[in-house]
Each structure stands twice: as structure tokens, then as C-alpha cells.
Design a protein around this nucleic acid. Structure first.
Lengths: 354, 354
DNA sequence: GTTAGAATTTCTAACGTTAGAAGTGATGCT
DNA sequence: AGCATCACTTCTAACGTTAGAAATTCTAAC
């Protein structure tokens, strides 16, 4: 009788005017709050008859537990944030999709956030979204200083993707980038390619995937006695189609010398192929092109794009295993989890005809 | 002295062992809770000296208000859900990006959810994510029965995108689909195309964008005295690359008769072009192809893809305006908001050379 | 020096959930 | 009959925030 709000489930169309609370259920069923939670959580020590009555009341009121109340009480939200630079990049979209599915398997809701708008957003993600009661962060950093990140992440369960931070700031999940680059070069050599260019290195960021892949590339080129030259190695920060197109522009004078181009991402490769075709450079006959990420668009390109594929579902599962372990208090030193990769050969890197 | 937790900001490395609460700030500053909130909310009636002391305490403890606490108290979360079938579809990724940016402009956090996994997920979105304290839903439905949706959405602020529900279940924001199709046909006619096929109609779902666009298509074909035939009109549910490829397969026998293909989405168009090229059908010389959505990939395709572009930023802003008005209690009948579209002409629909 | 009124601050209940502690009966054993 | 044990249920404080009401202090005018 101390409740002034009396219109639960009383809409004249039979729908509640406001969501029912635990208290409403308790009153309708004529039991205490605790008994209702006991029923909701399927606990013992509730008489069958009481249980039935409570369940009926729950059904009648259409009661759904308020996650906010729970969260406040438990300190846990079962929400993790996936922080990526831009959600409209194909690879990151596919990653988000895989993470959402994996989150579901592991009992977590994945809240995808974009950090690419500003450094502030990146730092906010790195700090674990203070105030938002995020249980953990899956983070694909772009520009944040690794040192700073290591500092901030100490108190936020976090798993890193994409860029490798040598300081071991947090758990890291990725393919073996160097080895995948070696596989790429081996494949090109198998197809008779000898003089290979590379787009996407960046010595200034030695831990970037582009640089890791470049190291594998260079090692394989040496091991297999292939040729590369400094002016065939183009560095860039952003792995976009635009950049790829611009880089290919720079390579046009070398066409005829080079017979293959390795791009640190499919987007770079797509941009490069676009430029090549526009200048009547034939792919793969004049130049083989290959990238990383196996984005769907590559399959529908003409020529279709060869690429290094990550098993995203596996990557997402590993990520959640690591993250959940951290959420549950694991304080071991940061670990690196490697997931397998696979070379998907399509038209763009087939051996030249004739 | 009734607080048993005494390790706020007491980590021996100078970082808090747990997040600071309002109460911690109040104690450190030697004032009451209300005074601290008054400072946090920049309210009057706080002495300058007190304000300074509180601010110092906030800074020292690194206090950030708990959004959960706020949400419980206010019933508002300032979070809206964007429910799309799949986040890894290029158009939906671009839409999500635009919505996240617009949300920021309007003071909302956008939580992107995928509903494509099951009907349950769609219904959950339609019901406003019960228990999650979502303030509103931006919803791009795929399969939910409009009738049911109308029923559920009555109590959840909601804006619909994509599919048009004639029942007026909720506010709807989109381009003028019929007019855009007429513009497409006009453009093809201007380029000398006369016999035009269409992929993406679906009479079973008369309110689907594919069907709306088809209606505009047919009207324009009649008005401009162009030709189309029943076996040039292919219906489909899913606007994917795969479907587009399959539909184009069906059209191969008609090549030579038709000189243009209108696809209800860019993905369909991309799939179709892939099939055409694989079968040495020249685009645009043999067949012009054009789609909707202006996804970035279309620009890098060869031939680059002509498309109907929506101004996504404008669409997102309109969406938020409508949604916020609903959140604030607007009970007017559901409205339709139309945003402008633009025809982006690229290579795939250029007039045949020679 | 009083006092009305304003300025500033504190007190307290509430948001919806949870779970430990405490309470009530009923049963079975001696 | 007395008592411990068990099944079941209720009571209550707590999570972090907010804001109306109440209390206190200050200011200025008489």
C-alpha cells in the first residue's frame, strides 16, 4: 500500500503502461520479493504451488528483469565493447559480426563502438568506457600510444586485435602475420613470380600488422632468392582502397619489371587493382596481386582477389576465452594467442596464361 | 564510518583499486552527496570555494559518474539500439557508421545489434529490448510481420528504415524509392537503352523496397515507351551478391535482347556483373547495370558501379529527430520522412561506345 | 540586534535487483 | 513432550545516482 504507482498491466488495451517490476509480481502472487527472485533464478526451496503462482503472475504481467537493476546490484553487465576504428570497413564489419555471434555463444552482449573519430574515443575505449559498466573491451587500436595503453588497461579486462603491442599491454589474438606473409610469397614463387613489390610497410610503427607482414615478406624473398627493390616497397599508414589506388599509381612506371604485388590488406589490393585496370595493366597476367583479410568483396571482383583468410569465428572464440578469463580475475602476464590462417587462391594471383 | 570499503584511490601505484563513487568524493571533500551532484551538474547555489573543493576531490579520485546508477534513477539511458539484419553488409555498415555519428551529435550512444540470426532476435528488437533500458530503437526489419510489429512498437519509441510498412506502425525514414527508380530508368533511356530487365521485385512483400522500386521502374518504362518483359523481371528476397550472381545466370539467355539491368541493390548488381564478366558479357557495352545504395565497393569495381545514393548523414539526422521526438512523448500518428537521393553515374551504365 | 529572505547545504527516499540473515512451520526422532 | 532439523518464506540492506524537502548559514535591511 506504499506504492503510489498503480497502473501495472492496466492499460485498457491489456498492455502494461509501464514495465512490471519484481515488486509487482510479488504483490500479485502474494509472496515476498526474495521468493520471486528464487523462482526467476530457478532455485530450490520454493514449494511447487508457490512456484506456479509466481510463474503465473510473471506471465500475466509480462515481467522481464531489469538489467539495470541487476547490473547495479551485481556490478556485472555481461556486456563487452568491441572498439574498432570504423564499423563500415568490410573486414571490421565481418569481425564485428563474428564477435557478436561468439558473444552470444559465451553469454555476452557485444556493443560495437567506433573509435576512429578521435584520439579521445580511442582513449575512452582503452580506459574501459568509464561509467558504462562494460565488463571488458575487445580493442583494435589505431593510434593510441602503446605505453599509455598498457597503463590504462591494467584495470580493464582487455583483449587486443590487429596491432601487436610488444610491451605486452594486454592479451593479443591474431594470426601469425609473418608466417602468413611467407606463405604468400611462397605461393607467388610457385606461380613463377620473381620480382615482387610490397605495399603497406611502415617502419615507424614496427608493431603494426603491415610491418610484421613485411618482415615475413622480406625474409621469404631472401630465402627463395626472389627479387625486390627499395622503390618497389611502398609504406603507408592507412589500409584503404584509396591508398591502394594511390600506391599503385606510384608503381605504374615499374610495371614490366615487377610481376607481383603483395598488399597488406584486401582494401589496398582492391584499390591497386582498380588503378591497374584503369591503366590497362592486366591482373594477373602482367602483375599478380594478393592481399589479407579475405573480405567478401574480393570474391566478386574481376579478377577475384586472392587473400590470406583468418578464421574469424575461431578468432572470436579465442578472444572471448581470453577476455572472460581476465574478467574472472586472471592476472597472468599478457599472452599472445595465434589463430590459424589460410591462403585463398583466386584469379588475381593465378600464374600468367601462356 | 559505515563504509567498509576503504581502498578508493589507494592502489600502491596511485591508481584506484575500484571506481570512485559519489560518496567517496563527498567524503573526501567533506560535503554531502547532493552538493557533489550539484557540482557535477553545474548547478547554482554552490559556493565557489565548495565547488573548487569538490572539483579537486573529483580530480583526485578520478571520479566518473556511474551510468548504471543514473539510468536506474532516471529511467533513461541515452542509448538507442540500431537493429539491422547483419552488420557486415556494406550498406548496413555505412548506415551504422552514419547513425553512430548522428547519435553523437544528438547526445545518444548507438548500440548496434544484429537481428538476422533469428526471428527471436527480430522480435526482441521490435519489443524494445525489454529489460535493457534502451530509450528507443532504430529498426531495419527483415521478416517480422508488420501487424505484430505495429502491436509491439506501440510502447517503444521506434523509427523504421528500409522496409516500408503500410500500416504506419512507426515513423519511417527513407528515400522516395519509386521516384528514384524512375530517375534510374530515365537515365538509362537517356543513354539509349531500350530493353530493360529488373532484379529484386517481390509481389509477396508489396511494401519491400524492392517492390517499391519495381513499381517506379514499371511506371517509368511505360511512360518512356521502353520495353520490358515478364521473363526479364526476376524476383528475389535477399539482396545479396550471391543472389545477384544467380539471377544474372538466369538472364544470360536474354543477353542480346536486353540492353540494361536494374538491380534493387548494389550487392545484387555486383553479383550480376561478376556473372556477366565471367561469361564475357561486356558491361556496359552489352548491358548497362545500375543499383541502389552507393556502397564504396562499387566505386572500385571494374567497371565502377552506377548507383542511387542516399545521403546517409541526412537520413541519420532525420531518424534521430523523429526518434527523439517519440522518446519525449510525441504521440502523433506515424509519419513518413523522405530524404533526398542522388544518381551517381559511373562506368557500369555509360552509353555503349561507338 | 533582530529578522525576513535568500543562498547554500544536508537529509532521505526512491529507482529494481540481489542475497545473507532471520523467521516460521512442519516433520521426525528420542 | 521436547527438541533438533529441515523446507520454505520473509526481512532488510546494499549497489550508485538523483532530487524534493528540510535544515542551516548568510546577507541585508530595519
Amino acid at each position: 500500500m506504499d506504492d503510489h504507482r498503480d497502473d501495472v498491466g492496466a492499460g485498457r488495451d491489456g498492455r502494461p503502461a509501464r514495465p512490471a517490476r519484481l515488486k509487482d509480481v510479488a504483490e500479485l502472487a502474494g509472496v515476498s520479493l526474495k521468493t520471486v527472485t528464487n523462482v526467476v533464478h530457478e532455485r530450490r526451496h520454493v514449494k511447487a504451488e508457490t512456484r506456479a503462482r509466481v510463474k503465473a503472475a510473471i506471465a500475466e504481467l509480462g515481467y522481464t528483469p531489469s538489467l539495470v537493476g541487476r547490473q547495479l546490484q551485481s556490478g556485472r553487465s555481461n556486456i563487452v565493447a568491441l572498439a574498432v576504428p570504423r564499423i563500415d570497413e568490410p573486414y571490421l564489419g565481418a569481425l564485428a559480426h563474428a564477435m557478436i555471434m561468439a558473444g552470444e555463444r559465451h553469454g555476452y552482449t557485444v556493443f560495437t563502438d567506433e573509435t576512429g573519430r578521435s584520439d579521445d574515443h580511442e582513449l575512452r575505449a582503452a580506459a574501459g568506457y568509464p561509467g558504462n559498466s562494460i565488463d571488458g573491451v575487445i580493442y583494435s587500436p589505431l593510434a593510441v600510444d602503446p605505453r599509455r595503453l598498457a597503463d590504462m588497461s591494467r584495470f580493464t579486462p582487455m583483449v587486443l586485435l590487429g596491432e601487436h603491442l610488444s610491451e605486452g599491454a594486454a592479451d593479443y589474438v591474431a594470426i601469425d602475420n609473418e608466417q602468413s606473409a611467407k606463405d604468400v610469397v611462397q605461393h607467388l614463387a610457385d606461380g613463377g613470380r620473381r620480382r615482387i613489390a610490397y605495399v603497406g610497410s611502415n617502419p615507424a610503427r614496427s608493431s603494426s600488422v603491415g610491418q610484421l607482414r613485411f618482415q615475413g615478406f622480406r625474409a621469404a624473398v631472401n630465402d627463395l632468392d626472389l627479387e625486390t627493390r627499395d622503390d618497389w616497397l611502398l609504406r603507408c599508414d592507412r589500409y584503404t582502397r584509396e591508398t591502394g589506388a594511390a600506391m599503385a599509381e606510384q608503381l605504374l612506371p615499374q610495371i614490366g619489371e615487377i610481376d607481383a604485388l603483395v598488399c597488406a590488406s584486401d582494401l589496398l589490393a582492391i584499390g591497386a587493382i582498380r588503378t591497374f585496370i584503369a591503366h590497362h595493366v592486366r591482373v594477373p597476367d602482367d602483375v599478380a596481386v594478393i592481399g589479407w583479410d579475405n573480405i567478401v568483396d574480393g570474391r566478386y571482383l574481376s579478377p577475384s582477389l586472392s587473400s590470406v583468410a583468418t578464421d574469424l569465428d575461431l578468432l572470436a572464440d579465442r578472444t572471448f576465452e581470453a577476455l572472460i578469463s581476465r574478467i574472472q580475475g586472471n592476472r597472468d602476464p599478457a599472452a599472445v594467442y595465434t589463430v590459424p590462417h589460410e591462403l585463398i587462391i583466386r584469379e588475381s594471383s593465378r600464374p600468367p596464361t601462356g
